[in-house]
Structures are given as structure tokens and as C-alpha cells.
Design a protein around this nucleic acid. Structure first.
Lengths: 358, 358
DNA sequence: CGCTAACTTGTGATCGGTAACAACTGGGGT
DNA sequence: ACCCCAGTTGTTACCGATCACAAGTTAGCG
């Protein structure tokens, strides 16, 4: 028997002193098979829960695996099955609350479904770096790609993905029909916020927007503007900004000087935080003189001064849903049109909004 | 030539209609070799930048790779080299600012070093779930594991890692010498904060701590307490809490009622946020009546009301340094004692601290 | 008792790379 | 002219799993 693999043992010994030490080798299927007194194929059957294995044999194999602390080699399995059991995530290198939460939602759902997750983060959302990230994931032979995709460059890059590879964009805007997406209804969220302020009696609502090149920000602007139109309220101008508290603070300083401003809807909670500070410094009290609404419902926004009324979106759920879509694609690789899942955000009323002073 | 691989084309056709479609196969090394008119081994040499390949040959191979859009199959490479080029991260499923930042720091450094990153997140820090996560990563045959390790259960689980596998804990406490760690000097940070307040003239400093079962929280308590001792200041009692704004708010309500409280050091910035709200609601002005210091320097804390004086720690750097340690272990697998890297945090003075009122 | 069907198990090929070794080139030194 | 060595390329075995197929075993049934 040993004669069949002449180089096995000797070769192993002869290989010492390599430049970079290879991983120490654990036991492999052959070892388990030998210990259990069966063929390697039977071990494989037990592992893959093939029905036609005698109970007694299965027990022996499982015992041998236990005894040898056997772990199946995924590389070998991947090589032959062409299925890696791995999904890729293209993530933006940011600590914005949303993206981070989505990542964990995705990982959680992937684990439940029996998949591994590898991350390729990009520092910028340029087309080139996204393509590079996708390429890295393809090398890993991932079975599908989730792109945390706030900007079109990302989903566009997905279109270039080698044909047949499943993909989904999560949490961005809706600008490309070719790639399935899962996102929240930003316009609806903006409408909720704006209408809430109008309903309180404000004659109009100002808006401090996120970066204009982010579709999410644009959709929120449109929802806000549409609501004002529908109500016949004047539409104040919008200045370009970023997602940061600093941006909210800077624009807030200007708004605070304008006594006509009684209600402000912010592109996200961080902007709202900056705005609150600017209003406070200018001596304008919230919500008595100015009402403020945010977007995202970060864990902290209930503890702002005052606690922030905002639009809640469930990032973890977004991550989970994106995985549902992705797995569906993997299992039924029909080329029917990409689906677009749209989740509804909710208004959370806290203490930063009130009717305008008479 | 074709006779050598009789099943290649026919087998492919016969395999249609499998239950789950395997990945569509791209071109492989053999295809590139054929197109370039060389052997597959030469292609391998070009790929691995082996020096002894004629310039002209290399050019032809590269062209062929380009033309066929060739991508090397990492599973095959891993199988034979026993090196996966992948590192594993055990991450806590949380959106705390710190862990999320570290993840990106790690991924960034890993990419630079030519490694992939796969994530295994855990929902709780129990020993069992951490072990399970480590096991998942081992299956992936990662070459090293970074554990975002705020609690000892995590680093302890690392000790159980199959011998020879490199590992490092990042960002937790220092309670186990067996596993290398990279973390910031929490006690030193706490001393900075406390001393800052004492230097302003406060007769003592109160503390709202993080969860007592987190070493990080405990180290901060010790740093604070030690500084008070050294200054001969009375040491107020510490209540158990969590890292959340809610915890800060609840404990803040009690502190706000006590007129003897003029300076508070918080376990992190979120706690400080809650505390600020409690003080505000109780009508105690910050910093004029009460000074507050946080810990972490989240991006938003400069926009709290008032802007928060806090201890800055560089999470991304923490992630990068952990990778340095890990790669060092991989390249020099000597069994010398584990190193422990300790980064120094910095005091950032903003507007939430001032001398006590006369 | 023989025969087929279902269950169980083993054998050999294969996935796509890399490692080891052999074979073939073309100078440079004596 | 000869040898040797370095540079270049090809051949073959191998990593550790799965798959297809064959072979042996048991059971059911006329």
C-alpha cells in the first residue's frame, strides 16, 4: 500500500528548510480513512451527508475525524467543485454608521446560509478602485458579490463582473437597472420628515443635504422638494455639503442667522448634530425656535441635545435582505430582470421638533 | 494533443443541468500557455516573477494572459503551496466606532501586504462562539488571525488555535501573555484625562465607567483611581455601566443632583454624550459648573454641546500595527515570547472642561 | 434457487496550479 | 576542441478534495 505513494513520507521530510514555512499540515481525508478502515471516498460521503452510508460506518468515520481533529481542506474542495462557499463584500473604507452596520448584517446572514465572507474595501469610490476590488474578489473565486454601493460607480463596476457571477448593490441610490439592489426608500423617508414638519405648522422646511454626488443624498433632496411643492410651500435653496457634522455646523451657522428658518431637515444625523451646535451657539433654541429632523437614527441620536427626531433605517436588515437577493441569484441563475428591493424607513419622533412659535 | 485529455470537452457538455450550476470556467493556465506557445510551467514562472524567463517570452505570455483575461485560480495555488494568502479577522458584531475602524485599518494594511481578509464575526464574546469563529477561519486555511479582542475570552480562544498559526489580539486589555496584542495604553489615557481635570483645579474627579467585565474599562478605572490617589484626592465610588449613551444618561442623572460633582471622566464618548444630556436637563452648565472628559475621540465628539474634551486613540493605526505584528510572526515563526505593542493615546482639549467656579 | 434492484463501498480521473528535476541552449575559459 | 556553468524551457508528480463509474453486498420476490 505504501509503495503506491513512494514519495509521500520521504518527500515530506526532504522539504524542510523552505524559505517561508508552509502551514503545518494537519490530518487529511486519507488519514481519517485509514483510521476508520474505509476509503477516502467514504469519508467524503460522510462529510457531505450522502444518504447511502451505513450507520455504523458513519459512526466510525466521525470518531476518526474527531480523534484526528480533522478539518476539510476548502481549497481542494473549491478546486474541484468550482464553488468556494465564499461571498465577497466591496465596502467603503469608512466608519459611517450605515456601512459598518450593513457589513455585519451581511456577514450574519452569510454565516447562517453557510457562506464565508471576504472583504475588499476601497478607499475611494472611483471606478478604478472599485474594479480593482471586484477583481480581487474574483480571484478568490467568490460565488457572489455584495457591493455596499452608495455611488453609481460601484454598481456600474458590477456590470463588468464576469458574466454569471451573482451580485447585488445595497444601500445606494437607484440609477442602474442592470444590477439588483436593496435599499431604503430615501425619497419616502424625506417625505416623512418634511411632512412631519409641515404638519406641525411650519410654513416651509429648509434642508441641509449630503454630498450632491451621492444618489442617496439626491433622493432625499427630491423627496423633500416634492413634499414642499405638493404643499405649496416655498422651496429654499440647497447648498452642497458632506455627510459630516462639520458640514452641518458650517451651514447651520448661516441658517441660524436667518430668522425665517424655523424647520430644518438634515441629510443625516451627523449633519443634524453639527446643525444643533450651530443653532445653540447662535442662541436659537431647539425645538422652540427651530425644529430639526435627521436621517439614519444612529444609536446616539436619542441623546443629542435635544434628542433628535429622525428617520430610522434598519441597516442590519438591509444587509440581510441583500443576501437573500444574492443567494436567490446564485440558486436560480435565470437571467430574469434584476429585482430591486425597497425598504420603508420610519419616522421616529423625539424632542427636536415642535410647532413654530406663534 | 487533444487525445491527452479525452474527457475535457465532452465531459463539460455532459455536465449541464447540475443542481447548482458551478462557476462558469474562465481560461486557465493551460489556455494561456497554448496561446503563447509555451508550457504551462513557463506561464507559472511569469506569474510568480521568476527571474529566469527571457524578456521576449515573458512579453508573449503577458499578452496571452491579457487576451484571455486570465485570472489565476487561488484555490489551486493554495492547495499546492499550503499558503492561502488570506488572513482572518474575528470581529465583534457591533457598530461601536472602535471595532469598525479597526477592521478597515486591518483590511487596508492586509491589502498593502498582498493578503486577502475574511471576516468571522461573533454576536457575543462567549468562549464558545469565538472558538467557532476561529474554527471557521481555520477551515479557510487562513495564515493568521487578528482578533478584535476587547474581552479575555477572545484572546484565550486564540491560545487554542492550531499550533503554528499566527495570531494577534488588537484593542483589548492585557490579560494574557501567551498571545501577542496591540492595544492602546488605557491606563495612561485615563491618567491624562484625570490629571487634566485636577490641573484645572478640581478637587476630585468622578468617573462613569464602561462595563466592568471589559478589561479596557477596568484599565481606565485603574488609571483614573491611581491618579487620584497620587494627588491625594478622594476617590468617588464607581457604578457598573455599559458603553452606551443611555448608561451615561442614567448615571448622569444621579451625578447631576450632587453639587459636589464638578468634574467627570467618562469611559467613552458615548457615555459622555449621555452625561451631557443629563447635566443639561438638570440645568448644570458645562463646562462652567461641571467639566466632562470622554474617551475615544469619535468623529462627532467635536460637535457635541459643548465640544468634548476627550482622549484620542487612533483605531486605524491600531489595526495597521496589529498587522505588522501578525506578518512578522508569519515570516519569522520563531517561538520567542509574544510581543505586546502599546500605543499612547492623546488628550484633545475642547470646550467641555474648565476650572471649577470659585 | 436464481435474478434483479437497492444499498454500500472502492478505484481512478480530475480540478489548476507549483515544485523538483531533466533537457536543451549558448557563451567563456583552458 | 572540450568542458562547465548559467540561463531558459519542458515533463512529471503532487496538493486534497469530489465525481463518475464499477464492483461487491444485501434484500426482496417470483
Amino acid at each position: 500500500m505504501a509503495a503506491k505513494r513512494p514519495a509521500a513520507d520521504d518527500g515530506q521530510a526532504a522539504r524542510t528548510d523552505g524559505a517561508v514555512a508552509p502551514q503545518p499540515r494537519g490530518s487529511v481525508m486519507r488519514d481519517v480513512a485509514r483510521l476508520a478502515g474505509v476509503s477516502h471516498q467514504t469519508v467524503s460521503r460522510v462529510l457531505n451527508e450522502h444518504p447511502n452510508v451505513r450507520q455504523e460506518t458513519r459512526r466510525r468515520v466521525l470518531e476518526a475525524m474527531q480523534a484526528l481533529n480533522y478539518r476539510r481542506n476548502l481549497a481542494a474542495r473549491t478546486l474541484v467543485t468550482r464553488r468556494s462557499g465564499t461571498l465577497g463584500v466591496v465596502g467603503l473604507e469608512t466608519t459611517l454608521f450605515g456601512p459598518a452596520s450593513m457589513l455585519y448584517g451581511i456577514e450574519d446572514a452569510a454565516r447562517t446560509a453557510g457562506y464565508f465572507v471576504t472583504v475588499a474595501s476601497v478607499r475611494t469610490l472611483e471606478r478604478r478602485s472599485v474594479l480593482e476590488a471586484v477583481d480581487r474578489l474574483c480571484q478568490q473565486s467568490v460565488e457572489g458579490i455584495v457591493a455596499i454601493a452608495p455611488k453609481p460607480a460601484v454598481t456600474n463596476a458590477l456590470v463588468q463582473v464576469p458574466s454569471g457571477l451573482a451580485s447585488v448593490g445595497v444601500g445606494g441610490g437607484a440609477d442602474d437597472d442592470a444590477v439588483p439592489t436593496v435599499r431604503i426608500d430615501n425619497a419616502a423617508g424625506a417625505r416623512l420628515a418634511t411632512q412631519h414638519l409641515l404638519d406641525l405648522g411650519h410654513s416651509t422646511v429648509h434642508h441641509v443635504a449630503g454630498p450632491p454626488d451621492w444618489p442617496e443624498a439626491r433622493e432625499r433632496v427630491e423627496g423633500w422638494r416634492g413634499t414642499l411643492y405638493a404643499a405649496g410651500a416655498p422651496v429654499p435653496p440647497v447648498e452642497p455639503g458632506s455627510w459630516s457634522a462639520q458640514s452641518g455646523y458650517e451651514q447651520g451657522q448661516a441658517l441660524a442667522r436667518d430668522p425665517a428658518v424655523t424647520a430644518v431637515f438634515c441629510g443625516n444625523d451627523q449633519i443634524a448634530l453639527g446643525l444643533l451646535r450651530a443653532l445653540h451657539e447662535a442662541g436659537r433654541r431647539v425645538p422652540h425656535e427651530v425644529s430639526v429632523v435627521g436621517f439614519d437614527d444612529m444609536p446616539d441620536s436619542g441623546y443629542f441635545l435635544p434628542p433628535l427626531t429622525t428617520i430610522h433605517q434598519d441597516f442590519a436588515e438591509l444587509g440581510r435582505r441583500s443576501l437573500t437577493v444574492l443567494l436567490d441569484q446564485i440558486q436560480h441563475p435565470g437571467d430574469r430582470p434584476a429585482d430591486h428591493v425597497l425598504l420603508s424607513p420610519e419616522l421616529v419622533v423625539r424632542a427636536s421638533t415642535a410647532p413654530p412659535r406663534a
